[in-house]
């Protein structure tokens, strides 16, 4: 009896232990080592003294604010547009109509497709000699590739944002769709009988229901884009680069003395990301209660 009691007591810790063990060892371990290196502690190359110099170097770099702005702008607009489009499509797809099944399936297609493939497709589509430019040239709207707007390797990062839109709209959309379907039409019916208009029903009935889903998914999407390296590297301008590209390029440099700076850049990136997300969540909570 005593033994059974013990097993009962240990049940939850035992269930959690494997996940906690792996994630703590790998994630927290990596974070601590990275933090150490950013503070100039890297005994393997003879750096033994803690210093804030690398943070000062990064923060006083003329290009830092520019890079931060590029990183933020891409993540912000990708997230904002994805969310708006996702909600719009979810509102349409929640109803059953001819072709709704096909549309729902098509809507899901980008979800499993890797970002690299999406990026490759966007490049072939929207470069100055891409498929859209060829289409316009065929119908006589375009004479040479240089008449087509610059959408890849551009300062605004249009191709990067398009790639993320293509990937993230279905992700957010499906979460919103799931919530909408679980709610059912009852609330709206009730609101309608009480005389609420279309817009009012959306804003005061549906919005509070789907807001937690929107907040969560947009946090995931923003955090992912804010820290991702491959797409801005492949489709972005060489200067100014995003912070993850800056960090990773420094990390890959054969000069190991650039490592602490790479780590400092990514720690700063992490801190900014967390601050933004906490603020956003606060704001969203405030909006729900208000």
């Amino acid at each position: 009896m005593q033994r059974l009691h013990l097993i009962e007591k240990l049940r939850v810790p035992l269930m959690l232990a494997p996940s906690l063990l792996i994630l703590t060892l790998l994630f927290v371990g990596g974070l601590v080592v990275g933090l150490g290196q950013s503070l100039g502690y890297m005994p393997v190359i003879g750096l033994n003294n803690f210093t804030l110099r690398h943070y000062v170097d990064v923060l006083t770099d003329n290009n830092f604010l520019q890079s931060l702005w590029v990183t933020f702008r891409i993540a912000f607009f990708s997230t904002l547009f994805s969310t708006v489009l996702a909600v719009a499509f979810a509102l349409i797809l929640r109803e059953t109509f001819v072709g709704s099944q096909l549309s729902t399936f098509m809507f899901q297609v980008p979800l499993p497709i890797p970002h690299l493939v999406a990026a490759n497709g966007i490049v072939l589509l929207v470069t100055q000699s891409g498929l859209i430019a060829r289409l316009l040239a065929t119908v006589g709207l375009l004479n040479s590739p240089s008449d087509f707007p610059v959408l890849v390797f551009d300062r605004a990062g249009i191709a990067i944002i398009l790639t993320y839109l293509w990937k993230e709209v279905p992700f957010i959309g499906l979460v919103v769709l799931a919530v909408l379907k679980s709610v059912g039409p009852e609330f709206e019916e009730l609101a309608r009988t009480l005389g609420a208009g279309r817009w009012q029903r959306f804003w005061f009935v549906l919005m509070p229901l789907i807001l937690p889903g929107i907040v969560s998914t947009s946090i995931i999407v923003f955090a992912f884009i804010f820290a991702s390296y491959e797409i801005p590297l492949l489709l972005g301008v060489r200067f100014p680069t995003t912070l993850p590209v800056w960090a990773f390029n420094n990390y890959r440099d054969p000069d190991l003395n650039l490592r602490p700076e790479a780590m400092a850049v990514s720690i700063i990136l992490t801190v900014i990301s967390i601050i933004l997300l906490v603020a956003y969540r606060r704001l969203a909570r405030y909006a729900v209660t208000a």
Partner: peptide, 8 residues
């Protein structure tokens, strides 16, 4: 999920 993995 939230904290950028790059530093890790």
């Amino acid at each position: 999920i939230i904290v950028p993995g790059i530093v890790v």
